[in-house]
Design a binder for these strands. Structure first.
Lengths: 173, 173
DNA sequence: GATAAGTCTACTATTTCACTAGAGATGGCA
DNA sequence: TGCCATCTCTAGTGAAATAGTAGACTTATC
């Protein structure tokens, strides 16, 4: 019932991206993400590229480039992200909704294992297909603020450029 | 989020053993189990040995030997079986109840990924730690009878020895 | 055009998985 | 007692997945 490192890192990166976006820093570089989460840079790059092809992040190349969320965090379902990277959520293929495969048992309709695993699959999917990146980001920020923990990617001081960014964000919600 | 073949075969074998016991055949041989589920015999043997050391099945060696459930099916929790064979149910180690390990994130209390995966772990455990082998066996049998599907391990005809077995089972419930 | 970013493709070490093989122990029965 | 069917223990193995590394290439900014 393992989540791969691939998916784990992908989710961490997305959460960071969401957090940063909330705090007025919509774009982050791989090196920043890798440093924050202590992940191998090149591996994370691969994962981010995969997230791009999946439509979850956008990239800007060249100097001042980086990664940002390609769509609103409230429209990113975590289950879909895991499916993209790890394949089906289902513990066995014969109860997968997204990638069903027949198993070896002679009679699926009367297979006890299948009934059980269908319950498990549904339990997993109920969590992962309902919670959005936005929810995770919001809960994380709330907890950090409540516990007075320094929020990552937040700028210490505000300069003119920050104010301009904030103004823009407000005018285009 | 995969269930290993090991666990899959273990659960199939336990379900068969439970089914057979319900039908008055408390003991089955590896070859029978392997034939019914079309599993490799030697691999299944290893798994059954593991189930024995875990206290789920009992064995009898020699001629007329075989495997039987070591305790009442209603006392066998499927989650515990999977933990024995595959390790923790949790998708990542830092949310495991049975085998917790710290992960790389600097602050677990404010880790969004962890909150999410804790929900997933709990969803999985809620299913697997609550349902017993007896429940699966019962549902399977009910469905088979309802749909008039021949129940496995049921004897075609009754002879004297069968009646004696049934009589014994009734007198010692 | 130098530099700093992401992109693409290939490679690789390690581990896990799903078995296979075979000698050994044990129990029932003739 | 000896035979044979059964479980047991230990070792080995091929394939696949996992978790990266490496490096040449493209693109954008200054």
């Amino acid at each position: 019932m393992n989540l791969s490192k691939r998916s784990e890192y992908a989710l961490r990166a997305l959460i960071d991206l969401g957090l940063a976006a909330e705090l007025g820093r919509p774009m982050l570089q791989v090196t920043e993400l890798a440093a924050k989460e202590k992940l191998p840079v090149k591996f994370l790059e691969q994962i981010l590229t995969q997230l791009r092809t999946g439509g979850y992040v956008e990239t800007k190349r060249g100097k001042l480039g980086g990664y940002s969320l390609a769509k609103d965090a409230s429209r990113i379902k975590l289950g879909a992200v895991i499916r993209l990277l790890d394949g089906p959520l289902a513990p066995i293929a014969c109860v997968s909704q997204s990638d069903y495969r027949r198993c070896t048992c002679p009679d699926e309709a009367h297979c006890g294992l299948r009934m059980l695993m269908l319950d498990v699959r549904n339990a997993i999917a109920r969590v992962l297909d309902r919670t959005t990146l936005a929810q995770i980001v919001e809960i994380t920020m709330r907890k950090m603020r409540r516990d007075k923990v320094p929020v990552p990617f937040a700028r210490q001081a505000f300069g003119l450029s920050d104010l301009l960014v904030l103004a823009q964000r407000k005018s285009v919600p």
